[in-house]
Nucleic acid binder design. Structure first.
Lengths: 181, 181
DNA sequence: TTGACATGTAAACAAGCGTCTACTAATCCT
DNA sequence: AGGATTAGTAGACGCTTGTTTACATGTCAA
């Protein structure tokens, strides 16, 4: 046929970018359709509803796993290095930004919650030894989410023209304080 | 007359609570009017537009100033104590929550940015000595905003039934890592 | 007391939203 | 080759949104 798979993928990718950029509520079905060069009705046909599409976007987005895996001792340093790079380049992890900008729509809270709980807090906590690993992981995730919030509010400028090495050293201290037993 | 001042104040307070609870976009003019027991048209008459009302809410909301003032050495401890209390009671500062849940509406970004820049980052940075005070203050604000994000996504449960003293000690270490010269 | 002004009200407005229905057209299977 | 199935399209539907307009009512000054 005329390639349902390709169209479906174009819709998903267009939605992924738009949700990350403007947030769930600001993005309309027609915006997604236009960006994907597809018809609006196809979005509903393939993903059911707008919330369903968003759930798919969140569920299939890559998470921190590439950074998390490795020796647990080096975890704060790896998180700090990644964040320092992001701060310096002015970008934010796409999925983190999507989560931050999603707002408070009741229909999408469940999937957001599950994703943060499993793929962020749970993934970090699994690497930690010592008491209350989820509690410590949650603090690290707090900081990661905070960066998205700050950038949403202030744009990419703050912390950008800082000395990357100094920022990274500070971030290592922050993540260590969050995660150490 | 029929007390314009009182009606105006009821509208402002109703809007303040609703915006903090549900976020800017989820709150409708009719919700505010109902909560304030006022007519919808009066909101527009007194505040111009929905964005204008939101600007008024954000501009008049109390900030961290009570916590920030005092000796700079004790600032991390005071911030940590306040946050530990908030985490334990499951609440979040109203204005911080309003900012977090405001979403990405272009019409309100300017006022949000100004408020975070001046009343949070600027206020903390003014108390700091050493190099790049704004940069260090921004990291602390990152963490503060992150707590609002985490609670928006996960609700009040996480970090709630932890040992408050242990959490507070950890938070002191985090804020110290953010703010120390 | 009465006219003028401020306050409050109700209804409608136009626009935008997500979704659905009816239809066309392309591709596959036998 | 031709019916069946599926991808894609166009347009309307019902609803909600923020805002505005026209009107009623209460209050104060003269």
């Amino acid at each position: 046929m005329r390639d349902r798979a390709a169209t479906s993928r174009r819709i998903l990718e267009a939605a992924r970018e738009l949700f990350a950029e403007h947030g769930y509520e600001q993005v309309t079905m027609r915006m997604i359709a236009a960006a994907a060069e597809a018809n609006v009705s196809l979005i509903n046909r393939y993903f059911g509803t707008k919330a369903g599409l968003f759930a798919q976007v969140v569920a299939t987005g890559s998470t921190l796993e590439a950074v998390i895996e490795g020796d647990p001792e080096g975890l704060p340093a790896r998180l700090a290095a990644r964040m320092a790079l992001r701060l310096h380049t002015g970008t934010v992890e796409q999925l983190t930004r999507t989560i931050d900008r999603a707002g408070t729509s009741p229909e999408i809270r469940a999937v957001l919650r599950a994703r943060v709980e499993d793929a962020m807090i749970g993934a970090i906590a699994a690497r930690l030894s010592g008491p209350r690993p989820r509690e410590r992981a949650a603090l690290a995730v707090t900081f990661i989410l905070g960066v998205s919030s700050l950038r949403r509010l202030l744009g990419p400028e703050p912390l950008r023209d800082s000395d990357p090495a100094a920022v990274e050293a500070r971030l290592i201290a922050v993540f260590t304080a969050c995660l150490r037993p």
